[in-house]
Amino acid sequence: MTPTESLSITLSVNGATVAREVPARLSLADFLREELRLTGTHLGCEHGVCGACTVLLDGEPVRACLMLAVQARGHSVTTVEGLTPAGGGLTPLQAAFQRHHAVQCGFCTPGMLMTATALLAGNPSPSAEQVRDALSGNICRCTGYVQIVEAVMDAAAGAEA
């Protein structure tokens, strides 16, 4: 096996199959943003701390700045654009974010949604403490998190009802 600086990859992004030739060093986040123009995945630090680039890899939240695009080969990636069908409304979680004023500048929002989506998929009725723990890798500078936690709890309660 010879290492190369450029590779062909095929993966699924938001349910669609995507094939590209990419440089080895291209991060998954840059691939999504620059190659696929899915700019809902944000870059806040590019060293794995802020969580703004969180996407789902096979349903699990990951930092897209800490993965190479080539590592997503054969996997399924979901970004914030993939949470709702094109042109079609909000998910219950997104709607709860709006209701609770869990969004201010919006820059952390996609990462928060992806992390919370994964949380609720695995734990449909989390405690507030579990929500806070799950979101603790996603920095928000605007909201103080209170309304974000309320929104996630509300979405969970709504789904249960």
Partner: peptide
């Protein structure tokens, strides 16, 4: 803040990985 250029390989076996490590100091 972008990674410097490098070559990449994803071997499917431990032996493959060891061979690559041996070949590239």
């Amino acid at each position: 803040m972008k990674a410097p250029p490098f070559a990449y390989a994803a071997p499917a076996s431990i032996e493959g990985a060891l061979a690559l490590l041996a070949a590239h100091e």
